[in-house]
Design a protein around this nucleic acid. Structure first.
Lengths: 202, 202
DNA sequence: CCTACCGATCGGTAGG
DNA sequence: CCTACCGATCGGTAGG
């Protein structure tokens, strides 16, 4: 479940309801193709009422993306606190990342964050990038711990980007019915990466 | 260079000029955020003149995406004709795929194809999917040839999707100045996949 | 291929 | 939070 930092569910406030409806629509139709009227119809209020809670349509997008990125980062930070062995850490991070992409309601926020970042305000882009860097650092540390010989900085920053890509692309093809469950997906990617790390360590 | 099937350059016809300008704008701003007037200003004609060549804005998008997918497929088919050894085949396919994503002017067409497919007409979606399947078959055959024991159908169709993701995601971060050249990118991903294939074959 | 134009719809506002 | 509304801009058309 998605929470705000104050511990209340997003759905419990009108502002939160708008965010949840907007995230779902932005994911399904795209930011530009979604109108204020689409969102307010879903929530059940008049279109003008949007601007009691947000100054502009873009401000809704900014809030959705930042909320999504905070959710992702706090999940990864919880993994770090468990102090897992590197292999287990990577598996858990991957498993969780797939969940961020596919489990509602978080997936709406995260998918919008990934695929509409171009439309964010400059300030929101900066904020998201800041949180994203912290998320990436967690992955990098995990991958460093995995190699028995140190991995060069170029190769390291390339590796986590390739992994992110492999996972993030799944939003374009993954269907929960036909495709293997998240655990299998994570295991498959782990099976690809772990042998390669062992080879590079020889 | 991008060619039409009749051998003429796209830029040599007014219709082609519109396609090239539209592809560049769709890639940079997104389909919905790009206006007919953006496109015609870039080409240097009046906005109404668009409809001498296309019935609607969507028809431009359809043409851009199909042109992009045809370019990708014909490139891969040329690789197949070279009858390379599986390892070399994979490296060449990856190297070429990165080129499709990053070398102008093809990258505009291909990126739009990847990230605006939601906005395509139903007919164009079908056409693109048909060509895409043929492209995927080429990758699958190459990957099958790579394994010394047969790879299961689930694992096989997962593997090529993970590879596509790793490559396609690069449009979100790759910068030709700062990041390693396409050859290194392809080599890095090959270094990830090839050891895993060997392990799975043991 | 251009000029001139149009109906629809958009994000956003004023006043209550 | 609603009603009533507006200026701007959009994709697309008619006629030449």
């Amino acid at each position: 479940m998605k929470k705000k930092s104050n511990g209340q569910y997003l759905e419990s406030s009108r502002r939160g309801e708008i965010l949840v409806a907007a995230a779902e629509l932005f994911r399904a139709k795209g930011y530009e193709a979604t109108t204020i009227r689409d969102i307010t119809t879903a929530v059940g209020i008049a279109s003008g009422s949007t601007f009691c809670h947000f100054r502009s349509k873009r401000e809704i997008l900014d809030a959705v993306a930042i909320e999504g990125m905070r959710h992702v980062l706090s999940g990864a930070e919880a993994v770090v606190r468990r102090s897992l062995a590197p292999e287990e850490c990577l598996r858990v991070l991957m498993r969780q990342h797939i969940g961020f992409l596919h489990d509602p309601p978080a997936r709406d926020f995260v998918t919008v964050l990934l695929y509409e970042s171009r439309a964010l305000s400059v300030a929101a882009q900066k904020e998201v990038r800041l949180l994203m860097t912290r998320y990436e650092e967690i992955w990098k540390a995990c991958l460093q711990g995995l190699a028995t010989v140190p991995v060069g900085p170029v190769r390291e920053s390339l590796l986590h980007r390739l992994l992110f890509g492999a996972l993030n692309w799944s939003v374009h093809w993954y269907s929960p019915g036909d495709d293997p469950p998240p655990e299998v997906l994570a295991e498959e990617l782990a099976g690809l990466v772990l042998p390669a790390m062992r080879v590079s360590a020889e």
